[in-house]
């Protein structure tokens, strides 16, 4: 997973966070791997550019933990693709992780912000 085109400015993301982002990307509905990657790129305004070498293993891990489910479907332009969808357990996990991240982000910005 990298951000921007400039290698030196890539922000590395921990394993767990990518999984949370994937779960979020599926909140609106099932999607395939390409779609997930595009979503993350767009929503982060090109800050997060997903490396497939991280995306696919993350999808497998989520499958193992049964937070997402997979199904082969024919996409709108009649192409066969593997669609991932959120499971109820995954939904619960997403909620927990979201609130944790928000608290984390607030705490970080409080400390990093200049005093005053």
């Amino acid at each position: 997973m990298s951000t921007a085109e400039n290698l030196s400015e890539r922000i590395g993301l921990l394993q767990g966070t990518l999984e949370v982002l994937i779960l979020r990307s599926l909140l609106l509905g099932p999607n395939h791997a390409y779609g997930i990657a595009q979503y993350l790129k767009r929503q982060s305004e090109h800050e997060f550019v997903v490396d497939n070498g991280s995306l696919y293993p993350a999808l497998q891990r989520l499958l193992q933990r049964k937070w997402i489910a997979a199904q082969w479907k024919t996409s709108p332009n009649s192409r066969r693709a593997r669609y991932y969808s959120l499971t109820p357990a995954g939904h619960k996990q997403l909620d927990a992780a979201t609130s944790k991240w928000q608290r984390f982000a607030q705490a970080m910005s409080r400390i990093l912000a200049p005093e005053g």
Partner: peptide, 14 residues
């Protein structure tokens, strides 16, 4: 096999 097919589809979409 699943992975191969999935990756192929991914690239096609790109």
């Amino acid at each position: 096999d699943d992975l191969r097919e999935e990756i192929e589809a991914h690239i096609e979409m790109q």
